[in-house]
């Protein structure tokens, strides 16, 4: 879901960059030292996830895993995703340096939103409830990312509904896969260390 260089107009790039700076600032401020290593591992996971290609659907799509990153880091998703995106831009030529801000926002903001939307469900003790919540985190983050992509493409002349429908339709398989991955992650963390899910956004 990386947007390449030379597509978006200046104002969109600038507002994306500004939002990314604010988000990263909040993330770094909230992240205490104990979470740095965790953020590093999640950042690395996000970094390699985009190499895992899913051969279904009309376009060329890959795992994103922003839901999991958001769930475990809260606002810390911003710095973690920013670091991974910088490296993807430099090493893989995914996205680009000028679109770094926009790309960070479009993947990290849904992560944070899903964290706040679904964390009450995740913290529930009922297995059905927290697993459902986990699925929504994984798939909802992708859905919201798709909507932000479409929003930023509106300013280049693509019609919003058309672009949104195209992006979201292309990512339906990924939404399902990431929903399931997030369910497994949450199920596992609940068993071994539920505390991880309590303190992300203090």
């Amino acid at each position: 879901m990386h947007i390449s260089e030379g597509i978006l107009s200046g104002p969109v790039l600038l507002s994306g960059a500004a939002l990314a700076v604010v988000g990263t600032g909040i993330g770094l401020k909230q992240m205490d030292y104990d979470r740095v290593a965790q953020a590093g591992v999640l950042s690395a996971s996000f970094f390699v996830a985009s190499l895992i290609h899913v051969p279904i659907g009309p376009s060329s799509i890959h795992l994103i895993l922003n839901g999991v990153v958001g769930l475990l880091l809260g606002w810390g998703a911003f710095p973690a995703i920013l670091v991974a995106l910088v490296l993807q831009a430099i090493l893989f030529q995914y996205g680009g340096i000028t679109t770094l801000g926009v790309n960070t926002v479009l993947m990290a903001l849904p992560a944070v939103l899903c964290y706040y939307l679904f964390i009450p469900m995740i913290r529930s003790d009922k297995k059905g409830v927290f697993l459902t919540g986990a699925f929504f985190v994984g798939s909802g983050a992708i859905l919201l990312s798709g909507i932000i992509v479409a929003l930023s493409l509106v300013f280049t002349g693509e019609s919003f509904l058309e672009a949104a429908a195209l992006v979201v339709a292309a990512h339906v398989p990924i939404m399902v896969i990431e929903g399931v991955i997030t369910m497994f992650c949450v199920g596992f963390i609940k068993k071994v260390q539920p505390g991880l899910l309590l303190g992300a956004a203090r």
Binding site: M1, S4, H53, S59, H62, G95
Partner: peptide, 8 residues
């Protein structure tokens, strides 16, 4: 890596 990846 070989038959995979997207977004460029």
């Amino acid at each position: 890596v070989s038959p995979a990846a997207a977004h460029r």
